[in-house]
Design a protein around this nucleic acid. Sequence first.
DNA 1: CTGTAATTCAAACGTTCGTTTTAATAATAA
DNA 2: TTATTATTAAAACGAACGTTTGAATTACAG
Lengths: 250, 250
Amino acid sequence: MPDNKLNSDTRERILDVAERQFMAHGYEATSMRMITSMAEVNLAAVNYHFGSKEGLLRDVFRRRLTWLNRERLAALDALEQQANGAPLKPSQVLEAFFGTLLRIGEDESLGGMTFLRLLGRTLTDPSEFIRTFFAKEYAVVIERYKLALFRAVPDVPKAEIVWRLHFMLGAMSYAIAGTDILQVITGLEIGDISGKEEDGKSEARRLSERLMPFLLGGLRAALPNPADSYNQQQVPLAKTARNTSLEKKR
Amino acid sequence: MPDNKLNSDTRERILDVAERQFMAHGYEATSMRMITSMAEVNLAAVNYHFGSKEGLLRDVFRRRLTWLNRERLAALDALEQQANGAPLKPSQVLEAFFGTLLRIGEDESLGGMTFLRLLGRTLTDPSEFIRTFFAKEYAVVIERYKLALFRAVPDVPKAEIVWRLHFMLGAMSYAIAGTDILQVITGLEIGDISGKEEDGKSEARRLSERLMPFLLGGLRAALPNPADSYNQQQVPLAKTARNTSLEKKR
DNA sequence: CTGTAATTCAAACGTTCGTTTTAATAATAA
DNA sequence: TTATTATTAAAACGAACGTTTGAATTACAG
């Protein structure tokens, strides 16, 4: 068992194909035979180089997240050093966090939109293995950014900021992952805008321009008024159709 | 092949177990033998009642989405009728759309948090079958709400509103689906807040109170300034060690 | 009660899955 | 060179998959 050493080219070709197939069909629905045949390597090569299918998925993420984590921390370091002890602006923190991520989408050598979509989709994967992997992989970076946000938005309670970081991650992941289904759901207008190609690497940039103001608006939104419950009264309507959920029909 | 008639109780028990297992492990990783053994029915029962595993998944969603779609349209109808031709407030539209959804999480007979999580996770599923299914299932409702949002937020361009609807769906789905991984990623504070149980059905309500202001803030956020690209200058630092946000590096 | 349809059941179907084994080949060090 | 290790190759492993079959059982209309 090697597990170290430089790329044998086989390794890299497997990672490339696996990244794309996991993105297109999901982890469970992608078989090793699909991967190895498309990569034009022997079936046993995956187990030889990565130990198992899980090991392959882990390394697919590792080679991208290593860069991402380093870059995200560096971006925050630079901002804080320049701020000289003063709190950062919320837009700066978000730009460092989400802008760094979206840069991946513009650079094919960092994984491009393929990896971004894979990342967005995998974050909702329920499997235990994936959950613990990401928790470990992200822990340090998230902690740093959480603290930066606490300082950047001092008028919003910390607990609320954590919730909103949660929401922001979701909005971003979905916006990235959902190119297929959500753009169908929300209509073709986005397709019109994105218009396939004006320049080669515009998709991530266009997304960034739309996403960042949205996230900023959400992050700094007015606090929920504890007096009114959001669920009952905004919609004053009558008792609509009641019928719980099923039966009927057929 | 029957496919009609009322519930044989077997049908219902299969749907309940399948809903929970699909949520917990994902569609592909859930086998029919897991489902049928936990539901204490014969292995062949799924194929008999639903035709196939895909048919089962489809019906798992149908029995919930039928209610949700009807309720969402009814909520919008009631608001618009009451408004008497005047545009609705953004908060009203969001409350009708997301509030209705989150009500599912408070009512076990509508699917509860189990179904909400399943829904959130499934929306990112890459499989063709699921994508087209949701596109059809959602089309009418989304179209109605899109129009309502256009009127409710007239100062935001329509294309931008579609993007933000996209983002809002993502924030919501992730917030729902990601109870496991994202709460680990974003730290334990949320767990402290949610604190297991104060009252029986509080989880969805707590989520709603946090989510709604965030979505409203994002929906009405200031437009991106076309003059400045978000990628270059929000992080104003020098060319020093830090590359702004994209290219360069490496 | 009788007869027909609906449902349940045990068993097996053929396929595909991830992984392992054993041998052949390529690469590298002494 | 030779010895040693790393990599590739072909074939097979047992297990699990979704589905189908055909008989046994139940439900129910006449």
